[in-house]
Design a protein around this nucleic acid. Structure first.
Lengths: 337, 337
DNA sequence: CGTTAGCAGTCGGTACACTCGACTGCTACC
DNA sequence: GGTAGCAGTCGAGTGTACCGACTGCTAACG
């Protein structure tokens, strides 16, 4: 093992130790926990060089080293390849997805909690993008005098519904329903038919337009929805985040769902799966890392699951967890064929 | 003003000062901020008596007094009558409910955020109880081959739906739908008809039973749903809650929605609107207070809005806020008649 | 008898000095 | 290049002294 290679191993050791213990790592700790075949003095020399190169930092002169964001980045890029989930967790994921039979909202919500439990960090799930899911069938139903229900069955088997006020009679609703189905079927909710076929009956047409508008806006709203699980972990990680005010601002941001959703989409658009500390543009996340995995439905990218924790995070485990969850989630959302 | 009356005034002053400053209140502070017409020595005497009676406590010998839970209780019972909301906030509430046009889930979610903003504390909204709402109409709809949708319109105008697998033909679904409506209409989802009328057609009966079961379990689930807003406030109030671990456990509890929902229902069942610190059975809430107001739809109790904060809370303001919000929310949920 | 003034007493918080222990960085040597 | 050993540095923990903020009490007063 040449010198450069050994330095990489030292960096790896420091990251792993620091993630485990949360305390600055001393040269001696490295020589004792790893079998490098060199003395602590040599590790010290390596560490000074790693510090010069910006991978490690010293909180104060007489302390061990901790990884910098750049150090974590190197670790993630070089030492986290293809890690699988431990058997116990793998089973937990499989069980969860085998036994759950929920409406989409509930499923995504519980998925975020699953991921939070797996990683012991906060977890986010971004709902399927409306653009990605096709309408399998659409229908209008007269519920009772004055009320009509718009129902849309999506390609992934989920059902969206919206209530509309309307005084139309049963046969008129039926005619509107036919037009409704024609306008939406096999399209995505994001791009409905530009000109729904008119029926000649003004009242029916009005209902039709209303229904389409209602359903598409609803879809847009749902797709921008963020499901957050395990926020309590953020408070528990308090020590990692300097002040309690930082935690508060973080929680505040998570309540501002739109911000997070667009942030997540942005990262993935740039092909980023792991964003570490200062790599995050958003101020609140300067001490946090995000680990993401998109999930696919019918081969197209639908949404994203992710983990949000301190930069001092077990990246290998987090990556394995989001990978497993996203894969299973995508499979579950497939239309039962 | 006789002695007992003055002591009550002193208690009131201590509570108000402590809520404002978060620091133990000295006798001199009271004489300076209130015009009691007595000296600090007299206030000191009153304070010792209030302490003997359990309304005040001393963090340590040479410090001012802080209210005990019992002290807050007295304050709430005697000094918070009929407070109105400041004009600005009153307007904010009115605006919110005038401009919002959302599905029930979103409405309740945003209501919780409104309440959190009004009070600067965490806020909870408990959805309408399934027991309290009558079914206005119920229907089964054949969506597409193999799928039937059960739709239930509730007395408050909300719509519950559930998807069922079924291979029945259109006319069979229609017959099942009639039975479905007969079984549920004008009842609550919690107590469906014990023996749904059989139609003679086995397949239809099976679907009927399935549909009723699905809808009632779903209703139970939805009605147990909790909407939490402003969790970040809890972190900001950290100083009030001893450790960060306490905050974490509190957040954890809020994620366990069922616990909170039944807690809230329990309190209201006993006619309690304000639960202070140790009055709470739940351990995590020993340092918190809850201020609740039920909202009514069509004159019957439907759900609850509430504020969750430290015992050191502006009770008058919180009470006014929950009252205003619950009232407006109830009005909005009225069926459009 | 309630109220008041004044003073002694108590205790938390802060500032400071000191020690201990954990590392590093360096130098000389292999 | 790697190693041993030692001097140097700094944080954390500890003991002490002091200050300031209140109270509680006692004696006097109306």
């Amino acid at each position: 093992m040449d010198a450069a290679e050994r330095r990489a191993t030292v960096l790896k050791a420091v990251v792993e130790e620091y993630v485990r213990t949360a305390a600055p790592v001393a040269s001696q700790t490295v020589t004792e926990s790893r079998d490098l075949g060199v003395s602590s003095a040599t590790v010290r020399n390596d560490m000074t060089q790693l510090e010069r190169e910006g991978f490690l930092a010293q909180p104060h002169t007489s302390a061990g080293r901790i990884p910098t964001d750049q150090g974590y980045r190197y670790f993630v890029d070089h030492f986290t390849a293809a890690g699988g989930l431990p058997v116990g967790q793998r089973r937990a994921v499989a069980d969860f997805f085998a036994t759950t039979h929920r409406a989409l909202e509930d499923l995504l919500h519980e998925t975020s909690q699953l991921l939070a439990n797996l990683t012991s960090h906060a977890a986010v799930v971004v709902g399927p993008d409306a653009d990605a899911v096709r309408v399998r069938s659409a229908q209008l139903v007269a519920l009772e005098p004055g009320t009509v229900l718009a129902v849309v069955v999506l390609g992934n088997g989920t059902v969206e519904r919206e209530v509309l006020p309307s005084e139309l009679a049963g046969d008129q609703v039926a005619r509107a329903s036919a037009g409704f189905d024609a306008a939406l079927r096999d399209r995505t909710l994001a791009v409905p038919s530009t000109s729904p076929t008119t029926t000649g009956d003004d009242a029916v047409d009005v209902l039709l337009v209303q229904a389409i508008a209602a359903v598409t806006t609803r879809a847009k709203h749902v797709s921008d929805h963020l499901y957050v699980g395990g926020v309590s972990r953020l408070a528990a990680e308090q020590d990692a985040f300097t002040t309690t005010a930082t935690t508060a601002r973080l929680l505040e941001m998570l309540e501002e769902q739109v911000v997070v959703v667009s942030l997540v989409r942005d990262l993935l658009d740039h092909g980023v799966n792991v964003s570490i500390g200062s790599e995050n543009e958003v101020d609140e996340l300067r001490d946090c890392s995000i680990v993401l995995a998109p999930y696919q439905v019918e081969g197209t990218l639908a949404g994203t699951v992710g983990v949000l924790g301190p930069t001092r995070m077990d990246y290998a485990q987090a990556l394995a967890a989001v990978a497993a969850v996203s894969q299973q989630l995508g499979r579950l959302l497939l239309p039962p064929s």
